[in-house]
Design a protein around this nucleic acid. Structure first.
Length: 596
RNA sequence: GCCCCGGUAGCUCAGUUGGAUAGAGCGUCGCCCUUCUAAGGCGAAUGUCAUGGGUUCGAAUCCCUUCCGGGGUACCA
């Protein structure tokens, strides 16, 4: 039971005894005491004034006296206006420290056979272009949320739906056929996904030129967009693909193969992975069958041009197309099929889609569609809607080439990490792979923390002109603190100092107690992050912990301490902080170096 | 037009059930390495919490107005 809960329940009893009145836990506001004020935990007494019919100060005095007498972890108290600040007995804090030190599962819950299965879809790339910074945010969030949900005692299935078919894929295929001259990753030395992306951009260039020409010849914009030769050819290609034309399928397989090889490299670099991968090419027909079933059951309707629609105007939404007039599927068709397949494959109790907020409307429609098709789980799907990454110049657009490429960004950061490490000269004891791994760890730590510390729901700004920081509230700052702790623990081991969970001390320094308080908040942070699907909560917690540790580290020596009990206590404290840092950062997918 | 989301220091961001003097980092100006790693610590300056109103003992937080920005809005994904 957390300290907040203990105090809260005690306060409810106190009010009952003192004022013969019932209050619920919501009315008892318990918060951490502000740093400038003495005390550990604070009760806000304003809500009780009506019951006590006394001044805030006297009410707080009443409560304080009661708690001091009845609750053994409350040592003493002070009152400032309507705030009752309680001092908690040191043994309470010592017990927390012992728990952190000796319990490897401190702060997290472990899943068992009966735990809920949560399926988390993330990444979901199109196979017509390489990944960019927006995808990085998606991948990092998806991975981190998976780890956080796991830490809250759920079974997690990480999944990826690869959008490997559709008109957009045909665009790069067509462009490659027309202007590719047989170029391959081998012949050009280009990473597969970058090669295919090049032809996607190429398509757009030609398509735009054709539209401009048609408009010049007197066509309206809309008809020009529909009659440009490139788009007509691309539509034919999609029809041939859906008809399983052999050459078209072969080209599709070849080009997608290039892209997958490229994606694998990027995924590995980012340290993300999946338990189950679905391909739209396998699921879209199931979706189409579902749509046709809905049509037969008159859930949906058909227009004269034979396109299929759903009318959601009764639910406050619009009409939505489900199959085009030429019979091919649209984006939402495959999502229906994929959902059906997944629920057949796994005993899913919650389905989470990590997809950008530009698709909020899409997921509202999807939930209602699944519901209409008779799937009870449809309306419970959760769209984890995250914000866009914006550049100073505006939104990133793959077609126009105004993106921050994922591979380039990571490589650039590794270079910065390498240069900086060499300049600081701290890694001279390492060499070869170990050294290179540390550079990558630091670079990825900086990038991941930069992305994940921001509230996922909000749009965020990235300025390519300014490199991502390595000082201050950053991943490397946290890694650095961890490395310092490991250095101390190594030195302690060298001197044969054993670290005991047995703590014998009369009092603590303020910085020591502050650190203990921070440690005690870890379980609440993990839970809050899980409840809100927010890696930023973990990042923020970890930063506060690390900042607190650095102050302690600055003010107090550990190995230089002459009192053996105090030295042992500080070693236990440092070790515990180290393990919490490591665990918290692992929830963000950030690794901790032994040295840096 | 309609719907959704956002606006906090020069910049990037915290601030979740309404609580004490609104906080960090970067940048700026100072200070601290004969002492466990200075990717660190300490101090200074910087705010009409977009705007106007309302509810409340108390509002950055809840409700309404206006302004600004982003996204979506029937055959892109």
């Amino acid at each position: 039971m957390s300290i907040e809960t203990i105090i809260q329940q005690a306060a409810i009893k106190a009010v009952k005894t003192l004022y013969q009145a019932d209050v619920n836990s919501k009315q008892v506001q318990v918060q951490n005491t502000r740093k400038e004020v003495s005390g550990d935990i604070t009760i806000v007494v304003f809500p009780f004034l009506r019951l006590s019919k006394k001044s805030p100060e006297l009410t707080a005095e009443d409560l304080g006296n009661y708690l001091k007498e009845k609750i053994d972890i409350v040592d003493s108290f002070n009152v400032i206006k309507g705030f009752l600040n309680l001092d908690i007995n040191k043994n309470y804090w010592f017990n927390i420290l012992k728990d952190v030190f000796s319990n490897p599962d401190f702060g997290t819950k472990v899943a068992n056979d009966d735990s809920d299965v949560v399926m988390i879809e993330y990444s979901s790339p199109n196979t017509n272009k390489p990944l960019h910074l927006g995808h990085i945010r998606n991948n990092l969030l998806g991975y981190s949320i998976s780890e956080i949900v796991k830490a809250n005692g759920k079974k997690v299935v990480k999944t990826n739906i690869v959008n490997d078919r559709g008109i957009h894929i045909c665009k790069s295929m067509y462009a490659w056929q027309q202007w590719g001259n047989g170029e391959t990753p081998e012949s050009s030395g280009l990473k597969g996904d970058h090669l295919v992306g090049k032809y996607y951009v190429e398509f757009d260039k030609h398509y735009k030129a054709e539209i401009a020409e048609l408009i010049e010849n007197g066509l309206e914009k809309e008809s020009a967009e529909n009659q440009a030769p490139s788009i007509i050819a691309t539509r034919e290609l999609l029809l041939k693909w859906e008809a399983k034309d052999e050459d078209t399928i072969q080209l599709w397989k070849t080009m997608n193969g290039w892209v997958y090889a490229g994606f694998d490299v990027t995924y590995k670099t980012l340290g993300v992975d999946f338990d189950k991968i679905y391909y739209e090419s396998d699921t879209y027909l199931i979706g189409r069958d579902e749509v046709l079933r809905g049509l037969a059951e008159k859930t949906f309707y058909q227009k004269e041009d034979s396109s299929v629609w759903v009318d959601l105007s009764g639910e406050g939404l619009d009409q939505k197309i489900l199959l085009r007039s030429d019979g091919t599927s649209v984006y939402i068709t495959q999502d229906i099929g994929t959902a059906k397949m997944r629920f057949n494959d796994y005993p899913i109790s919650k389905m989470v889609y990590v997809v950008g907020n530009e698709q909020n409307y899409h997921f509202q429609v999807l939930a209602k569609l699944l519901d209409k098709l008779g799937y009870s789980w449809g309306k419970d799907l959760y769209h984890f809607s995250y914000g866009m990454v914006e550049l100073p110049s505006g939104k990133m657009k793959s077609r126009e080439g105004t993106v921050v490429d994922a591979d380039d960004l990571v490589e650039g950061m590794v270079k910065v990490a390498r240069d900086m490490s060499i300049e600081l000269g701290k890694l001279d004891s390492l060499s070869g792979k170990e050294l290179e791994d540390t550079f990558r760890m630091i670079a990825l730590g900086a990038l991941k923390y930069f992305i994940l510390k921001v509230d996922p729901r909000k749009n965020m700004m990235f300025n390519p002109e300014e490199s991502i920081d390595f000082n201050g509230n950053t991943g490397p700052f946290i890694q650095y603190t961890y490395a310092r702790i490991q250095s101390i623990l190594r030195k302690a081991a060298d001197r044969n100092v054993s670290i005991l969970a047995d703590l014998n001390m009369d009092s603590m320094e303020p910085k020591e107690k502050e650190l203990l308080k921070r440690l005690s908040l870890f379980p609440a942070a993990v839970q809050e992050a899980g409840d809100n699907y927010s890696p930023a909560v973990v990042a923020s917690y970890c930063y506060d912990l690390v900042k607190e540790f650095n102050q302690f580290y600055h003010d107090h020596t550990i190995l230089g301490e002459t009192d053996a009990n105090i030295m042992n206590f500080r070693l236990v404290l440092a070790s515990a902080v180290g393990s919490v840092i490591k665990k918290a950062m692992s929830l963000l997918g950030i690794e901790m170096p032994q040295r840096m």
